[in-house]
């Protein structure tokens, strides 16, 4: 099994696979985005309390979910690269960080744009918002480590350890609204009983969540491909690629 893993996990093979998959993943993402946006902006009815302002949910909630999901992917890839020295895992972790930081930033910024009219404030230091801000700093710290350390293998190892230390923040973000009194409301969809959102509003939200998933899959492959080129810049197969590009 491991032989298979190492063969398909080889940088060269991964590069070719990425070239093949990115257009497909990107295409699916675009279709889902169009469907989700039409559903969310045109077909979903306004909320009984928040009126039209609740439509921010369609970018805010998927961004927040992705910010947590990408962190878990990044830390797992870091652990794999630390223990099994899989080069592709390195590249995936490195490529995930800017995307995770982007989604965390979007979750915070769109949440702020929602909070101003509804709560009456752009920002509060409650447990949910504060732990999400810490997540942003974890991503930025990881990225800073990658640029600060010149040797890419050392940087990958240091980054993996940092991301593993930060994993503890993920359950804190998720459960903060249940463990402590927060201004942020409790979970709507991930709670155990039926989701407390009307289906006409839920369906576009789930479509948007899938769109963001496919976006991440496409862009992380695109970015990982570049990271692999950087890692392998002195190997023969990268050198050969220039021939194809010129022709």
């Amino acid at each position: 099994m491991f032989e298979y893993f190492y063969k398909y996990g080889s940088p060269r093979h991964f590069y070719d696979l990425s070239k093949m998959f990115v257009p497909w993943l990107g295409g699916i993402c675009l279709i889902l985005l169009i469907a989700g946006l039409t559903g969310g902006l045109f077909f979903a009815p306004p909320d009984y309390q928040q009126g039209e302002s609740f439509r921010i949910i369609y970018v805010h909630v998927p961004s927040a979910w992705m910010s947590l999901f990408i962190y878990v992917v990044m830390a797992s890839a870091g652990a794999i690269s630390l223990v099994w020295k899989v080069k592709v895992a390195d590249a995936l972790a490195r490529a995930s960080a800017p995307l995770g930081a982007s989604f965390t930033f979007l979750a915070l910024a769109t949440g702020s744009l929602w909070g101003k009219p509804m709560w009456g404030t752009w920002w509060v230091w409650d447990a949910r918002l504060t732990s999400e801000l810490i997540l942003l700093f974890l991503y930025l710290g990881y990225m800073a480590l990658q640029t600060a350390i010149d040797d890419r293998r050392t940087a990958a190892r240091a980054g993996a350890i940092l991301s593993l230390v930060g994993v503890v923040n993920i359950p804190i973000i998720h459960y903060s609204v249940e463990w402590w009194h927060t201004l942020h409301q409790g979970p709507t969809i991930t709670k155990l009983d039926a989701p407390s959102i009307h289906p006409s509003m839920l369906v576009p939200l789930l479509i948007m969540a899938f769109a963001f998933m496919f976006y991440y899959a496409a862009v992380v492959l695109l970015r990982a491909r570049y990271e692999i080129l950087e890692n392998e810049r002195n190997s023969a197969w990268v050198y050969e690629l220039t021939e194809q590009r010129k022709g």
């Binding site: 009815p45 306004p46 909320d47 009984y48 309390q49 928040q50 609740f54 949910i57 509804m118 709560w119 009456g120 404030t121 509060v124 201004l183 409301q185 409790g186 979970p187 709507t188 709670k191 407390s196 959102i197 009307h198 006409s200 509003m201």
Partner: peptide, 16 residues
Amino acid sequence: EVLAKHDENYMPPEVA
């Protein structure tokens, strides 16, 4: 300072 805390329920006005 007074801030509103909205709940986790979302529904159309007709359903409400």
